[in-house]
């Protein structure tokens, strides 16, 4: 009786461990799918949004969040601390690159005299 009780407890422990692993895998999967979803939405925004400025908004913000979620989902599976740091470094560099290139594109559009789209039905001038 006592023995079977101990065995049962062990089984429960193993099951609990498995359950935690499954839970972690499920969370990773969700993070990666949601991240990919944000990438998709960013690209949809590129098609749907009316002018260069609003398109930059869609691309930079949605993609940054998407990449962040994907990196977060992949982190627990990293082979080493250095590999995990590499993924975070990639995210940071992508953040800086998209924010600064977004600014440069917006500035170039301003200089060229591209008028922002507005709800008054005005599109581009010049």
């Amino acid at each position: 009786m006592a023995q079977s009780c101990a065995v049962n407890k062990k089984m429960i422990n193993i099951r609990a461990g498995e359950r935690i692993m499954n839970l972690l895998a499920a969370i990773q999967l969700i993070l990666i799918i949601v991240g990919a979803g944000f990438f998709l939405v960013g690209s949809v925004g590129l098609l749907r949004f009316p002018d260069v400025y609003t398109r930059i908004h869609a691309l930079t913000k949605a993609d940054n969040l998407g990449l962040g979620l994907i990196v977060l989902g992949l982190l627990p599976g990293a082979e080493s601390l250095a590999a995990a740091c590499k993924m975070l470094l990639i995210w940071m560099l992508a953040l800086i690159a998209s924010a600064s290139s977004g600014y440069l594109v917006a500035r170039a559009a301003r200089r060229r005299g591209s008028v922002p789209w507005s709800t008054q039905g005005e599109t581009r001038e010049k």
Binding site: G42, A58, G68
Partner: peptide, 24 residues
């Protein structure tokens, strides 16, 4: 802030009415 920003722009993108009111 980046979570808020990504969510905000994603919601605006997928809404059929495309709720934008851009300004400088």
């Amino acid at each position: 802030q980046s979570l808020r920003a990504g969510w905000d722009v994603a919601v605006r993108t997928v809404r059929p009415s495309l709720p934008l009111q851009p300004a400088i």
